[in-house]
Design a protein around this nucleic acid. Structure first.
Length: 264
DNA sequence: ATCGGTACCTGCACGC
DNA sequence: TGCGTGCAGGTACCGA
């Protein structure tokens, strides 16, 4: 984000789209024609979405999925799906797994409008009330972008660890003091991660090709079998709603009445 | 309305 | 060296 800010105020000379899949049904010729000559009026992050507003009021929406990258300059590669050239410089959209997308919208994109609140902006009262109404596991709820925007698998695990909550605890059963801890932990983890430039698990880089540093602060994510940094108990991995969850079985006690568990 | 399961796609680490 | 398997950050969509 901080690396693509410099594009604000620049004029798009040409747009080229090489992969229809990441356009999610958008017409590449129409998009290219609509983008050419437009200036980027602003760029804003909404959870995991990036929305650029154009000078004519239209929007370019980008989601990086799991492997997406926005690169300022450099040579297009095998997985470069979009190339925007500017009056000065160039932006490449690169995504090997193609789970991300780049879309053009005349109106503010509905998917973004439907997102839940920003964790750093939501009040504790709203957060706690929303939690108390959900019967799903807290892990699934944290990953649900209509509940809270921007929390992914890594940061969900890290926040649950810091709050001392088992990933399979039911959201509505979590005690008030723990909910408060979770609220604080989510905000803390996200702001630390943003500050550190993100988590580079395999090949994540920002627009200047820099990797993040937050992976060195992961206390449980990807540390199956390693000692818990608090009590030394080996970190465990379970699958919750098809996603791996890492936790300390002592610091994050299993509540009763859980759904079936697979540990490794 | 809400929930869980599945599909989408490529790359990598691993064991054989 | 090469092949098969399982795993990976995310969301949309389906049926229950």
């Amino acid at each position: 984000m901080r690396s693509i800010r410099p594009l604000v105020g620049r004029r798009i000379a040409t747009a080229e789209f090489r992969n229809l899949r990441v356009l999610r049904g958008g017409n590449p010729d129409h998009m290219a024609a609509r983008l050419a000559g437009r200036r980027i009026a602003s760029v804003k992050r909404y959870g995991k979405f990036i929305v650029a507003t154009l000078d004519d009021g239209a929007f370019l929406m980008i989601h990086l999925g799991m492997t997406g990258k926005l690169l300022l300059g450099g040579a297009p590669g095998k997985h470069t799906h979009a190339i925007l050239t500017f009056d000065r410089g160039m932006l490449l959209y690169d995504d090997s797994r193609q789970f991300g997308c780049i879309e053009f919208h005349e109106e503010f994109p509905k998917r973004v409008a439907r997102l839940g609140p920003e964790p750093l902006e939501v009040s504790y009262e709203d957060f706690a009330q929303a939690m108390s109404r959900r019967k799903t596991t807290v892990k699934a709820l944290l990953l649900n972008q209509t509940f809270l925007r921007g929390v992914g698998n890594i940061y969900a695990d890290e926040a649950l660890f810091r709050a001392g909550i088992h990933p399979q605890a039911l959201a509505c059963h979590i005690k008030k003091d723990r909910v408060r801890k979770l609220y604080d932990a989510v905000r803390q983890v996200l702001s630390e991660a943003i500050e550190a430039g993100g988590s580079s698990i395999s090949d994540y880089v920002d627009a200047e090709g820099r990797s993040g540093w937050f992976q060195f602060s992961h206390r449980v994510y990807g540390r199956t079998g390693e000692p818990c940094p608090v009590c030394g108990t080996p970190i465990r991995r379970v699958v919750v709603t098809q996603r791996s969850s890492h936790f300390c079985p002592v610091c994050q006690r299993r509540p009763g009445g859980l759904r079936n568990t697979r540990t490794s």
